[in-house]
Design a protein around this nucleic acid. Structure first.
Length: 336
DNA sequence: AACCTGGACAACCGCCACACC
DNA sequence: GGGTGTGGCGGTTGTCCAGGT
């Protein structure tokens, strides 16, 4: 049983707007505003258009103070760094760029920035963070990193001279002890490939959030892509349709610190209705305690602590877990 | 000159969350 | 509390145009 359409599709005009329609809509909006109802607006304004179409036309084109034309380098940076942090939340990104619409930014990203960025990475790992499903703001607020601190891994290639933004990129060379910063992404050095489930991986991401460790393995060339998640369920799918999903919670005592890894209640820097909750960001910053893992602990975490969707460990292959742990403990994890 | 291709932009579609009754 | 209407969002498609062959 489908919904009733918002308008009579047979009786509305589609396609590009004519100057006359634009003028009529603009005149009506100037005089009356939306009247709180976009659906009823076309009839009142004498337009044979769907209300949604009117709304879109107004918001994306006719509204005052809309900025068209070339994006500045600053805007490029904001878009890229926010995309790296929150993915394709165009409306939120648009809220940071006065005069730009989400549609504009989306088109600009899809047609120019994405290619520019991919070109600078050589087609490597530059994907957005996995997009969380649409959130019930009151129940599961997504983690939102301060975007300026989470640049694209190849940000420096894309914007020469922006090295200051990569202040977190440093090698960790602490034998057998790995210090993971909460809310930070790490990338395993790709010089060593590893085998998991019969496929060779070339890249491995370790993401830490407060009380959360997430390992994501990727293969180049459109191969398998596997995400190991803790707390919130994580899932990734690949272009060839192979998907692996692990989720759940795990916990234990490490360095005398109780780690529950239950994600609930630990989303800091969240946004709500598009507005960053700054006080929550402050709270997050205050609670940025370091998480210390040794080789055995990392291995243990990976091998035994998971209670994923399949009830198994995060990594089924002992050799794989050992390899990750050894790389981590040997300091071969690079902050992204 | 005709055709093809790719880029840029505008618009549509379907889904979801929320407000209201 | 449930049903319904609406607004908002993101993904996708359509259209136009410029440049290349």
């Amino acid at each position: 049983m489908g919904r009733a359409p918002c308008c009579d599709k047979n009786n509305v005009k589609k396609g590009p707007w004519s100057p006359e329609e634009d003028a009529r809509l603009k005149e009506f909006m100037d005089k009356h505003g939306t009247g709180g109802n976009w659906i009823a607006l076309p009839q009142k304004a004498g337009l044979r258009r769907c209300g949604k179409s009117c709304r879109l036309r107004w918001l994306n084109y006719l509204r005052p103070n809309i900025k068209h034309g070339e994006f500045t380098e600053h805007e490029d940076r904001v878009i890229c760094s926010m995309y790296a942090s929150i993915g394709s939340r165009w409306s939120i990104i648009a809220s940071q760029l006065p005069g730009r619409t989400d549609n504009d930014i989306k088109n600009y990203w899809n047609t120019k920035l994405k290619k520019k960025l991919m070109g600078s990475t050589g087609g490597g790992a530059g994907g957005p963070p996995p997009r969380a499903p649409r959130q019930n703001h009151q129940q599961h607020r997504p983690v939102l990193l301060p975007y300026s601190s989470s640049p694209h891994p190849n940000y420096n290639n894309f914007f020469p001279g922006s090295g200051a933004l990569l202040q977190h990129q440093s090698e960790l060379n602490i034998p057998h002890t790995l210090t993971l910063e909460p809310q930070q992404d790490y990338m395993l050095n790709s010089s060593n490939s590893m085998t998991h489930n019969g496929s060779t991986s070339h890249l491995l991401h370790v993401t830490t959030t407060h009380r959360q460790l997430q390992v994501k393995e990727e293969c180049g060339g459109g191969g398998n892509m596997i995400a190991f998640g803790c707390g919130d369920q994580q899932s990734c799918s690949s272009s060839d349709g192979t998907t692996a999903q692990y989720g759940g919670q795990f916990g234990g005592r490490h360095h005398g610190r109780e780690l529950s890894f239950d994600h609930n209640g630990y989303s800091y820097g969240a946004y709500n209705n598009g507005a960053v909750e700054q006080d929550q960001q402050k709270l997050f910053q205050q609670q940025q305690a370091q998480l210390d893992y040794g080789y055995e602990e990392i291995k243990q975490l990976l091998m035994t602590a998971g209670t994923g969707a399949d009830g198994g460990s995060l990594i089924h292959d002992p050799a794989a877990a050992e390899l990750i742990a050894s790389h981590a403990a040997a300091g071969k994890l690079t902050m992204m």
